[in-house]
Design a protein around this nucleic acid. Structure first.
Lengths: 190, 190
DNA sequence: GGATTTTTAGCACGATCGTTCGTACGCTGT
DNA sequence: ACAGCGTACGAACGATCGTGCTAAAAATCC
C-alpha cells in the first residue's frame, strides 16, 4: 500500500469527526490541514476538490458506522433479534461518542437536505441504506407495516441524538424505553 | 415607528428563510444583502455583528413559529386537546413549508449543538420552550410520564421533517399515524 | 423649507475560502 | 550513483468572509 493511501485514511479519520461537529460545509481545508500539521495544498492534492473531499468523508463515515453498528449486529439472526441489536448498538454508539459531533448522518442530512448535488445524493444514499435495512429486518420479523416501524425507530434515534446534545442526556434513556416499547409487540408475534 | 424597524423586519423575514435552508452560519451578510438589493454595510449597520444578526434571526423564527403553530393551538383547551392541536399544526406547518428550508429548529439545532456560545443558547432556549410546552400539556392531560411523551412527539416530528426533505413525503403520514397512536392513550384516561 | 438626525451606500481592511502552480524532498529500480 | 516518480510544501491567485470608517441620501422635526 502506497503512502498516499495511509495519509488519506488519516485525513479522513479526522475529517469525519470535524464534519460531524462543524458540518460538511464548515469542514474547511485549511482548518483540517492545520489540525493534521499538513499544508493546505498537500492535503488538497489527495482529493482535487472540496466536493471530492466531502464525498470521501461521507464514505469514510459510512464505513465507520458500518463497522461500529451494522457489522456487530449481524451476529444476531435476522428479524426481531437483529432489529433489536441495531437499535442497541446505535444508541450505544451515540452514548460512546463514536463521532465527535454526534450522529454524522443527523448533522449532514440536516445540512444538505436543501442543496441538490452529488453530496446530497451521497448523504441520502447513506441514510437510505440504514433505514432500508431497518425496514428489511422489520419485514422479516413479520411486522405488518415495516416502513412505519422503520420511520419510528429512525425518528426516535434522531431525537435521541438531537436532545442528548442540546437539552439533556435523559433523552437517551427515553429513547431506549420508547424503542423497547415499540419492539415489544414483536414478541407476541413469532 | 422609524423606518429602520420596518427594514429590519424585512431583512429578518428573508434571513429566517435563508437560515432555515443554508444554516445560521451559511447565512452570509453579502448574500443576504444581495437578495434584498441592499448594500452589505447598510444591512450590517442594523445589527452591528453577525452574531447579533443570528440572534435576531432566531428571535424572528421563534415569533413566526409561535404565530403559525403555538397561538392557533391555544384556542383549544389545555391538556389533551391542545396537545393534539400542537401536533397537527406542527405537521401542517411542515407540509405547508412555513420555513423555506424545513423546520428552522431542526436545522439550527443540528448545526449549533456543538458550538458553545450565545447562539447555541438561544437555539436551545427556543427548542426548550417548545418541548417544555409539550411536556406541560402532557402533564395537564394526566400522562404518567410527560417528559417521555414530549420526547417521543418531538422525535417523531423531527423525523418527519428530516425524512420528508431527504427521503420521501410519506414520512409525514407515518408521523401523523404514529403521533395519533401515541395520543390515543389519552382518550381512555380523562 | 431649512436644520438635524437617522438610515443607507461606497470603499477599504485583514483574514480566510477553494484552487493552481512550480518545486523540493524521499523513495524505488537500475 | 543516478534517473524517475510519487508525495508534500510554499507562495500566490481571485473571491468572499465579517467589519470598520466616511460621506451621501432620506426621513423627521421645528
Amino acid at each position: 500500500m502506497g503512502k498516499a493511501a495511509t495519509t488519506r485514511e488519516t485525513i479522513l479519520e479526522r475529517s469525519v469527526d470535524l464534519a460531524s461537529s462543524e458540518g460538511l460545509e464548515g469542514l474547511t481545508i485549511g482548518k483540517l490541514a492545520n489540525d493534521l500539521h499538513m499544508s493546505k495544498s498537500g492535503l488538497f492534492a489527495h482529493f482535487g476538490s472540496k466536493q471530492e473531499l466531502q464525498l470521501a468523508t461521507i464514505e469514510a463515515a459510512a464505513a465507520r458506522f458500518a463497522a461500529e453498528v451494522v457489522v456487530p449486529a449481524q451476529a444476531f439472526p435476522e428479524g426481531a433479534p437483529r432489529l433489536r441489536a441495531y437499535c442497541e448498538r446505535y444508541l450505544d454508539y451515540l452514548e460512546a461518542g463514536v463521532f465527535a459531533g454526534g450522529c454524522f448522518w443527523a448533522a449532514t442530512s440536516a445540512e444538505f437536505d436543501d442543496r441538490p448535488g452529488p453530496v446530497r445524493d451521497a448523504v441520502r444514499a447513506g441514510v437510505l441504506a440504514w433505514t432500508g435495512e431497518l425496514e428489511r429486518q422489520a419485514a422479516i420479523a413479520g411486522v405488518e407495516n415495516p416502513a412505519a416501524l422503520s420511520f419510528e425507530i429512525y425518528s426516535l434515534v434522531l431525537g435521541a441524538n438531537a436532545c442528548s446534545r442540546l437539552l439533556s442526556k435523559d433523552a437517551l434513556s427515553h429513547a431506549r424505553a420508547a424503542i423497547a416499547q415499540r419492539l415489544q409487540e414483536l414478541d407476541w408475534r413469532s
